[in-house]
């Protein structure tokens, strides 16, 4: 996806995040937090030249993408070099992750690790969990915005 499209989702979905009850609506509040953070991280990786931006969209099978336009209503699945990642490490990216991006990845991983126990599973949703989610989201977004404000495509 294009950086501009990632950032449009970041800003718009952040509005939804503010409308939801962090504890009462935890599943979708957390999932939306993760969606926003993933878009921000993808925008950073395009900005830094680590992955390519483009008009092809990541499928839930890592490494697969769909390419517009759909043919007879069906989106064609193709295997392409890494564009957007769906989660940290899915698909893997070439080379080492720059140190300044690792902290942002770590914050996103905190959100991703909440999927199985609290959204797909039924572990209790506590105030501490909500606070942990909020902190990881804030850390991820702050890191991503700082990187986006910096130089693009370092040598």
């Amino acid at each position: 996806m294009r950086i501009a499209d990632h950032m449009e989702k970041v800003e718009r979905l952040s509005e939804l995040r503010e409308q939801l009850d962090p504890r009462g609506d935890f599943e979708i509040w957390m999932w939306t937090s993760m969606t926003v953070a993933t878009n921000a991280v993808n925008a950073v990786m395009h900005h830094l030249g680590i992955t390519a931006e483009g008009d092809y969209y990541a499928h839930q099978i890592p490494g697969l993408y769909v390419v517009p336009p759909p043919q007879a209503g069906i989106w064609q699945r193709v295997i392409l070099p890494p564009g957007d990642v769906i989660h940290v490490g899915f698909p893997p990216i070439r080379g080492a992750v720059p140190a300044r991006l690792q902290q942002t990845f770590a914050a996103l991983t905190v959100l991703e690790d909440m999927r199985e126990p609290y959204v797909r599973g039924d572990d209790p949703i506590t105030p501490a969990l909500v606070e942990s989610c909020r902190r990881a989201f804030d850390d991820c977004l702050a890191g991503a915005r700082a990187l986006l404000a910096g130089a693009a495509k370092p040598a």
């Binding site: 989702k9 718009r12 979905l13 509005e15 939804l16 409308q19 939801l20 609506d25 599943e27 979708i28 999932w31 939306t32 969606t35 959204v119 797909r120 039924d122």
Partner: peptide, 30 residues
């Protein structure tokens, strides 16, 4: 537990407006 969680997420989905199609799709998927 799946039944309870599906109903809970569906109630959350009802709060999501049409501008937030990503969250509608994701909530429906979950």
């Amino acid at each position: 537990a799946h039944l309870h969680k599906a109903e809970r997420i569906t109630r959350q989905l009802a709060k999501i407006g049409p501008r937030f199609h990503e969250a509608r799709v994701e909530a429906a998927m979950l």
